[in-house]
Simulated scan of single mutants.
Amino acid sequence: MNPLWLMRMAKWVRHPPSLRQVQIAAVVIALVALIWGLDHFGFWPDWARVERAPRVPRL
């Protein structure tokens, strides 16, 4: 594990985030999970999907 994560975890223990920050993070994670679930189970509309552009051959 990267030692910077240990420093960040120690900082969070000493100075925990506010309730507002935790709520915002929870809402963002829930939205990401909802969008992923819709896409995974086939309910995401086709017009909202991104298609990869064809690869351009190198010269």
Results as ranks from 00 to 15, higher is better:
R52G: 05
R8W: 10
H15E: 13
P54C: 04
L19V: 09
S18P: 05
I35L: 10
W47V: 11
R58E: 13
I35Y: 03
A33Y: 04
A53K: 14
G42T: 02
L34Q: 03
N2G: 06
I24K: 12
S18I: 00
A10D: 13
V27E: 12
R49T: 05
A30F: 07
D39N: 14
A53H: 10
L6H: 06
R14H: 05
W36G: 02
M9A: 15
W5Q: 12
A48V: 00
M1C: 08
P57A: 03
R14K: 15
E51D: 07
P54N: 05
I29M: 12
P54T: 03
A25S: 11
W12T: 05
Q23C: 04
R58N: 07
W44I: 01
V50K: 15
P57C: 01
M9N: 11
H15I: 08
L6Y: 05
A53M: 11
A10L: 15
N2L: 09
R20H: 11
L4E: 09
V27M: 09
W36E: 02
G42I: 03
S18Y: 02
P17R: 10
L34M: 10
A53G: 04
I24V: 14
V56K: 05
L19F: 09
S18G: 14
L38Y: 00
N2C: 14
A10T: 10
W12R: 15
P57W: 02
A26R: 14
M9H: 11
P45L: 04
S18Q: 08
I29G: 06
W12C: 10
R20T: 12
A48K: 01
A48L: 15
R55T: 06
P54A: 05
D39V: 01
G42Y: 02
A53R: 15
L6N: 12
S18C: 13
V13F: 15
E51K: 10
R55K: 09
S18N: 04
H40A: 08
